[in-house]
Design a protein around this nucleic acid. Structure first.
Ligand SMILES: [Mn+2]
Ligand SMILES: [Mn+2]
Ligand SMILES: [Zn+2]
Ligand SMILES: [Zn+2]
Lengths: 143, 143
DNA sequence: GCCTGCAATGATACTGAGTATCACTACAAG
DNA sequence: CTTGTAGTGATACTCAGTATCATTGCAGGC
């Protein structure tokens, strides 16, 4: 059970998209590669006092466009981001502690395609977020 | 084919929750009862120059808590609200013109319950939004 | 119908997240 | 190295939403 998953280097992906490898971008990428959990933009900014807010936001936008990051819209508050694995997936978010987890459900994807018959127009995307009280929070509540 | 659906009066619902029936609240409720489509908070504020921003936001919050409104998180930009029918439902949002529609899919709800086995912790809610290019926008693109 | 307490209002100032600007910096190609 | 240009970051700004608080007006008691 290794926690380190082999994932393509986000910086390499940015370079493939024609962007330069710069020290600030590498710093941002290094930080968020270490985050197993979801993180906010402001979190990254605080972790990197030497790097301007604008650069952090710009780097996040590039990584989103490159598909390296997922953007989660929480019920309220600032969005969270997670490193995206290659496979299409969705997220559970603990409403108590904010922990983000991923899940995959191929039935869901099939269902989404079936819904195409119910809705007028062409489906171009979807967002599915499941709000949970996570296992750890459940045990805390009961103790 | 009547467009006016018989829905419980949002103001009456607020009164049931112990809130006063005031002129500003009635004005807000009157406006948004007329909107078949999704609307933003700022839209309501612009429609009611005599009423303070704070009051509009406060009224929207009360209606959300009372379950009268749904709040939609668009991919980016300010959230939209829609009057909620009693039945649980979800929304399609046209990525081109922003039109909001509703759909129901009981299979989806059954599936959500099935997912409970896959995720750790208790499911307390979910958000499903389907992004589309609506029928009207499709015909415009092709003309 | 009037008092009156307290809920509600709204002008204003504020916060927080994100973006535009622009003079400056540093990457990378030659 | 030199050099054009992509990238940076301090700063000022926008935009959505919230806190404050003096004033207003609703609703229940009389
Ligand atoms: Mn999906
Ligand atoms: Mn549902
Ligand atoms: Zn939790
Ligand atoms: Zn449309």
């Amino acid at each position: 059970m290794t926690t380190a998953k082999t994932r393509p280097d986000p910086m390499a992906i940015l370079e493939d998209h024609g962007y330069r490898s710069t020290a600030p971008r590498r710093a941002v990428v290094d930080i968020l590669r270490r985050k197993e959990d979801g993180f906010t933009a402001e979190e990254i900014i605080d972790d990197l006092p030497g790097i301007g807010r604008a650069t952090v936001y710009r780097t996040i936008r590039l990584l989103l466009e490159a598909g390296v990051l997922c953007k989660l819209a929480l019920p309220d508050g600032a969005p969270k981001y997670t490193l995206s694995t290659v496979e299409h997936h969705h997220h559970t978010i603990c409403v108590r502690c904010g922990t983000v987890d991923t899940f995959r459900d191929t039935t869901m994807e099939r269902l989404m395609r079936a819904i195409g018959d119910d809705v007028s127009g062409d489906i171009v995307g979807h967002r599915i977020e499941v709000y949970v009280t996570c296992g750890r929070c459940l045990t805390q509540v009961r103790s």
